[in-house]
Design a protein around this nucleic acid. Structure first.
Length: 647
RNA sequence: GCUGCUGUAGCUCAGUCGGCAGAGCGCGUCCUUGGUAAGGACGAGGCCAUGGGUUCGAGUCCCGUCAGCAGCACCA
């Protein structure tokens, strides 16, 4: 008996009945068989060792594909589970899936696994790989599976089975380790070569904080040594760029116990960066018809009752402060203040749109475990704005906003992707379906008219607003939360925000709530990592350092310094009693983009010798030429070459 | 918040079996006056996070607290 198998390249081959995808792969080539991890039979994913039941279309999945890699990782998690079982005995297993860039497995066991133990587990995994243990699949009824796992004391597996609706399930065994698993898996453990365990951590069973906490081991696998090393290097590069480390090294910011956790102290260098961002931000906003407002850091609780924040989000707010019997709150957002400014007089449709912007500092409660450097803090400054407009104006406002987003994100060298997040299932009922629809359409039309590429996130809007979320991609390709634009369907009604239309009647105002940088703390923290501390010249806290070669050159250096300072540049002299090589080293450590080196030759010819971070030693240049070049680079907000090269 | 790990000089860290508090970098003074990623000598700098306990004796062992880190959970 023969069966015919048609392959993705269109060829059809005949095989004896009872053959497996692995046999097919071997018949095609040893290389393919070696890289194969699973197969797709008539579109259904299957193990390599399964029997091909009949004539079919067959596709061999290899480790080179996303899908193949995921299968390899998933299989590696099983091998890790076996290793843990062998080493530590009584283990109750949670789940062990493949995830982005790797895999994990959750364990419930007496022994506390520390990162020092990972080496042992890895070693054991290596042994298991050497044993070439097969992954054996068995189909059984749910009842059988329950009694199997019950007899093994695997209570979490039993719990999982109780939620399974299908009549039968598959169970995979690898050596002593038996797992409830859909599969597929690699044929045997010998295919596992390039893996590494990365970390241990606690994780709640099924992700619920009310459930017991299990021990989770993270690891990763790749098809080849090269890919694994490349990944590990990228992890290392990310560590090197950690804004907490660079923030300390460059003296940008700090935190202090006595001040309190989650509260940022901006040092002069960090404040300089922020100041430049803020100035640029203000220019761009003023140019686009925004007006700046300032609102207090605390407000009576009444306003947050009205806005709905107290009933809805009180957990995020700090406790009330009693002032002469009135309860006040430190402000968790800026909206009410802006609305009150809008309402301080009667507004006509002729006044609209009104755009209020504020770098507004807010305070929100974050659980201690959530705090993280500048990225997750308890006090932060939002680049907030509220646009008050008519329904007719909304699309145009959205379009203009996308232009502003494009401008700002481009200036910082971020690539991005926009998402239109629509009404969630549980959402504000006080706004009508038409209002939700109209707001969502306005966002969509704005995106279309501006021509910004976007994806739709169905049901991912907030409780009270459809929104456009923009995700940023930094220099390492990592994702960051970016700008957000929300059409608020809640506040106009709650506060009765109205304007007088051309019909002389009151109409409800549209309020667009938006932030582009998000919070200055998070944004600057992200920028540090994005640029690895090598900021573009316009942001660099110290733009130029002048390095006199000997004491004899200090006077001339000072005149050079004066010239730069007069032009508004941030420059300093390193007149320490050190050799030039040391000063160069030191300026490099401090991540100063330009060094001007001054010796006899320069003093005589009235030049400076330029050493830039981008191009290294550039030789002698006239003073005039240098300051023009720097001015142009600052003015254009040019991104560093080291940065654009990486892109 | 939860689980685990870690707190020693400004920073990065060593400190063995419980027996005198250490290194490098940085900082200061002096020597050296030099050409593009670290010249030399000397010096200052510590309530070993904090409170308790065990002990003749605690940086070291035990318990609590505080803080940091990783992950989980959380993030309108």
């Amino acid at each position: 008996m023969k069966i015919s198998v048609s392959l993705p390249d269109g060829s059809i081959k005949e095989y004896e009945k009872g053959t497996s995808p692995l046999n097919v792969a071997e018949s095609i080539g040893a290389g393919l068989a070696k890289d194969a991890v699973a197969a797709r039979i008539d579109g259904e994913i299957a193990d390599l060792t399964t029997t091909i039941p009949q004539d079919c279309k067959l596709e061999i999945i290899t480790v080179d594909s996303e899908e193949g890699l995921e299968i390899l990782r998933h299989s590696t998690s099983h091998v890790m589970a076996l290793a843990v079982k062998r080493l530590y005995g009584d283990v109750v297993f949670g789940i062990g899936p493949a995830i982005e860039n790797g895999f994990y497995y959750d364990f419930d066991l007496e022994k506390v696994i520390s990162s020092d133990d990972l080496g042992n587990v890895e070693e054991e995994m290596g042994k298991i790989a050497g044993e070439a243990l097969p992954f054996e699949r068995k189909e059984m009824s749910v009842e059988e599976a329950v009694s199997l796992f019950d007899s093994l004391g695997q209570r979490y597996k039993v719990e999982l089975l109780q939620g399974i609706e299908t009549p039968t399930v598959s169970v995979y065994s690898t050596g002593d380790f038996v797992d409830l698993c859909r599969g597929p898996h690699i044929p045997d453990t010998s295919r596992l070569r390039h893996f590494k365990l990365l970390s241990v951590a606690g994780a709640y069973w099924r992700g619920l904080a009310s459930n017991p906490q299990l021990q989770r081991i993270y690891g990763t696998t790749f098809a080849g040594k090269k890919q694994l090393n490349k990944y590990l290097q990228r992890v290392q590069e990310a560590e090197k760029r950690d804004h907490r480390r660079i923030g300390r090294e460059m003296d940008l910011y700090s935190m202090d116990d006595e001040i309190g956790k989650g509260l940022v102290l901006w040092h002069p260098n960090g404040a300089e960066i922020r100041e430049n961002i803020e100035q640029y931000w203000k220019e761009e906003h003023r140019r686009r018809g925004y007006e700046f407002v300032l609102t207090p850091h605390m407000a009576s609780e009444r306003v947050y009752k009205r806005s709905g924040h107290i009933p809805q989000y009180e957990d995020m707010m700090y406790a009330p402060i009693d002032i002469e019997g009135d309860r006040y709150r430190v402000k968790p957002m800026n909206c009410p203040g802006h609305i009150k400014i809008f309402q301080s007089q009667m507004r006509s449709y002729r006044d609209l749109p009104i755009r209020y912007a504020e770098l507004g500092t807010v305070y929100r409660f974050e659980m201690s475990g959530a705090l993280h450097g500048m990225l997750r803090v308890r006090g932060f400054t939002q680049d907030d704005a509220h646009i008050f407009c008519t329904p007719e104006q909304l699309t145009g406002e959205v379009e203009a906003l996308l232009g502003l987003i494009d401008e700002l994100m481009g200036a910082f060298g971020y690539e991005y992707q926009a998402y239109l997040a629509t009404r969630p299932e549980v959402s504000l009922e006080t706004a009508s379906d038409e209002e939700w629809e109209r707001a969502t359409e306005a966002l969509r039309n704005g995106l279309e008219r501006y021509g910004m590429d976007y994806q739709v996130d169905e049901g991912e809007g907030t409780f009270y607003a459809p929104k456009i979320d923009v995700k940023l991609f930094d220099a390492l390709g990592r994702q960051w939360q970016g700008p957000t634009v929300q059409v608020d369907l809640n506040l106009p009604k709650r506060f009765g925000v109205n304007y007088i239309g051309d019909d002389g009647m009151e109409h409800e105002c549209i309020i667009v709530h938006r932030a582009i940088l998000g919070s200055l703390e998070r944004f600057v923290g992200g920028l540090i990592e994005h640029f690895a501390g090598w900021f573009p010249l316009w942001l660099a806290p110290e733009q130029v350092r002048i390095l006199p070669i000997t004491d004899n050159h200090i006077d001339y250096s000072k005149t050079v310094l004066d010239g730069l300072l007069k032009k508004g540049m941030r420059a300093a002299i390193d007149d320490r009693n050190e050799k030039t090589g040391y000063k160069v080293h030191s300026a490099t450590q401090d991540k100063v983009p330009y060094m001007l080196i001054i010796g006899d030759r320069e003093v005589e010819s009235g030049t400076v010798s330029v050493r830039s971070h981008d191009y290294g030693d550039e030789g002698a240049v006239s003073l005039e030429e240098v300051s023009q070049r720097l001015a142009a680079e600052i003015e254009s907000k040019a991104l560093p070459k080291s940065f654009t090269d990486l892109r």
